[in-house]
Design a protein around this nucleic acid. Structure first.
Lengths: 234, 234
DNA sequence: AAGTGGTCTAGACCACGAA
DNA sequence: TCGTGGTCTAGACCACTTG
């Protein structure tokens, strides 16, 4: 039955999460069959709930032996977050200053090696703040066909939010390309850091659920203010 | 039945992969029920196979409408790879020069801010080459209790391989922490790049399936020789 | 040998999209 | 309305770990 407003496996995972928090590391959790009987579900559903906990790094499973409480881990799975969302998680107040915004015509291309091909696109330069300190300098390209009149919107708001609410373009996945750079004088001035400092340049291409390109951006983040942490698996 | 040597869902996914390669982008693939009947499997198994294709970015699914061929994407999901494996993928010949290796005793700690706590550990400095060019400078810490006499092994081989085959310690997941740096003179000399170049420093902690720490390492990779590409999702 | 997780089945009903 | 994907069930057998 899938009539509940929240999927059963999610509710089960939440229940198990709180139970697990009382157990010691490496302590076994009840078997799948026992859990299925206790919660009145099928074993498949229990397994889906356990898979969620495993993805969160809360438990590990050994074939033939059982599932056990995993040691605590700091780093969570990488998710797709907008700058605004990232700030919210860190507990900082996000704000934005628009540096420039213009329409780039066919064949014209920027000096950013993210070339605009064959189609007019908006190019927006923005400086992003967390608690009023400059944390990121961003250049965003969005094709005019995807978001007509984007340039007339309030670009100090989250672009992802504007794309979603005003144009029905949800960014579902993204490819990122990460490079270490040494900041030039223009960026250094914006970010209020010394010229020649180490920084990260992130080139991002965002896609909707259909895999169509929605947005391309470059963001430059100073080394001392950002942590790039992530977990990987075999 | 789970008696096959390869899981059914994997074989199905491979079959579908080759079929999909003949279809145009956004073309629908057959429905789940049709596929289940055709391959003589249950719908659940078909769905698992389709989930694999979706993870690979080959198809996308719209509830109520169907599954469709996704536009090609360059970047694949991030996986856990050793240096040796990465080189293999890139088609380069990996080689290694051991710079230093020693046992660090209790309470002594390195200048690398990856502090050894309470336990003797091996500290190994290595220079890694791809086609004889220095691509990465690595410092690795491994507790003596995990891999006794590690220091007497052939450290020009893949450490991950040694840990797995000689000590039964498989690195199953890892947390990485990525920082942009400017290389100092010692590293610059090893890597044969100018002092003051931009580079990436990766701090990695590797865990076995039980979530126990197996290895900690720092690797420094020059900007011009490495791409850090990855995909993320909502 | 007994108990655990891993995979698969056949069938049911719900939620959504397109015509 | 009809066909699609999304979720769930009850039960089966296999593969593995442990006593």
């Amino acid at each position: 039955m899938a009539k509940e407003e929240v999927r059963k496996q999610f509710r089960l995972a939440d229940l198990l999460r709180s139970e697990i928090s009382d157990l010691a590391v490496n302590e076994p959790i009840p078997g799948e069959r026992a859990l299925a009987e206790r919660f009145g579900t099928s074993r498949v559903t229990i397994r889906q709930a356990l898979a969620l906990l495993q993805d969160d790094g809360l438990i590990y499973t050994v074939h033939g032996a059982g599932s056990f409480v995993a040691p605590p881990r700091v780093i969570k799975q990488m998710k797709l977050l907008s700058f605004t969302q990232e700030m919210k998680i860190k507990g900082l107040k996000a704000s934005t200053k628009v540096i420039s915004s213009k329409l780039i015509e066919d064949d014209e291309h920027a000096t950013d090696d993210f070339i605009v091909v064959g189609e007019p696109a908006y190019r927006i330069e923005r400086l992003r703040f967390g608690n009023l300190e400059p944390l990121s300098f961003e250049i965003t390209y969005i094709n005019q066909s995807i978001a007509p009149d984007l340039i007339d919107r309030d670009l100090t708001k989250s672009l992802y939010h504007i794309l979603e609410t005003e144009y029905g373009q949800e960014v579902f996945s993204a490819d990122e390309h990460l490079l270490p750079i040494i900041v030039d004088s223009r960026i250094a001035k914006f970010m209020k850091i010394p010229e020649g400092s180490a920084a990260i340049r992130i080139q991002r291409t965002g896609y909707n659920i259909r895999g169509e390109e929605v947005e391309r951006s470059i963001s430059i983040r100073q080394a001392t203010r950002w942590d790039f942490k992530y977990s990987i698996r075999i």
